[in-house]
Write a protein that binds this DNA or RNA. Structure first.
Lengths: 188, 188
DNA sequence: CGATTTTTTGAATGACTATTCAACTCCGGA
DNA sequence: TCCGGAGTTGAATAGTCATTCAAAAAATCG
């Protein structure tokens, strides 16, 4: 039996880039064909349909995001410092030319009304991220405070993912984060 | 000369409902035709094209939003109390069956990558909302603090517009807002 | 190597897209 | 009452959409 000739993860990364930038509706399968170099038939055999490809791309993105959060916090001098680092990284990302917010957030907003299960999936993945923050924060304080702080972090992450589209917003975002999350060990 | 047979604002309100729920790409002009009851030719004569209709819908939505913010704050016992009221209203909206976040926020995220001027427009309207909050807050404190608090408010509004899609999130959002905006006169 | 199974190819499909326009209707002014 | 311009009609257009499938190619196994 013949094995697939392409690297599934490479294809998914190209699909992530496309879907992330343009969203589900505005990305055509013909653009996917162009971006991946595969033929339509190969894509449909491997992923079923557009929704299947999108789902797998979303799942991969989410896994990468979770891994990056863990790495950043585990590699920082303290949990709080790690969380600050994550915010700073997100601010840096918003400076890039082709800033794309967060794939999960964009999907959440775009597909909510169609209530297909892609929206459900994005919501679940975002809950997973909140749960991860909560599990870290519970180590530094009691469970209830950790829960509250995780919510506040998510509100600020979501907020900056939208605010980041404003021109020259990096400095203002940082001010807003310091004001809203005063318990974090921000630098001088 | 014959006058237009339809009420422009009525048509725009129907367009707002459609575009708000499904977004720009996922709304077809045939859906617009169905929703408004107009024929294609009439729509194109009145609004030029899909982008023109969307632009006018977005502008009308934005004007309504600004007016509602002003009314809420002016009708409240204090500026702070009015802002609390706005947040509470937004939480209530997130409880509705067909919650649609905010038309401006959704547009901002959906159309950023295409960098057409609809995205620019949404960004400008959102800045206008921030400026309105700032002008109120400067009355209650000095200019610099008002500016900072307006940013923090926008971060929280954006945040809750995304977080609101999570199931049974109303209570958690309120907790997060109280934690992140402790200078507002929240109820008991 | 031959047989078998899997993967790739890429043109074709029918549905849907935004938009147009010639013919038609309507209405205010003369 | 009748004219002329403004609004309406709705079928038609050319393009794009997601998806399919028969045929060709490639890879694995005995």
């Amino acid at each position: 039996m013949a094995r697939a000739q392409f690297d599934r993860n490479e294809v998914l990364d190209k699909a992530i880039a496309l879907f992330w930038q343009h969203g589900y509706s505005a990305s055509s399968m013909q653009q996917v064909v162009k971006a991946t170099g595969l033929q339509p038939g190969s894509i449909y055999l491997a992923f079923g349909n557009k929704e299947g490809l999108f789902r797998e791309a979303l799942e991969r993105y989410s896994q990468k995001s979770l891994a990056r959060i863990r790495e950043t916090i585990d590699g920082a001098p303290s949990i709080g410092a790690g969380i600050c680092r994550i915010f700073e990284n997100n601010i840096e990302a918003s400076l890039e030319q082709n800033y794309c917010s967060c794939f999960l957030v964009k999907t959440q907003l775009e597909l909510a009304a169609e209530n297909n299960d892609l929206h459900e999936l994005a919501a679940k993945q975002l809950q997973g991220i909140e749960a991860l923050f909560q599990s870290y924060l519970e180590q530094e304080s009691d469970a209830e405070l950790g829960r509250q702080r995780a919510i506040s972090i998510m509100l600020h992450i979501f907020g900056m993912r939208v605010y980041g589209y404003q021109r020259d917003s990096a400095e203002r975002i940082l001010q807003g984060l310091r004001a809203g999350l005063p318990w974090l060990p921000w630098g001088p």
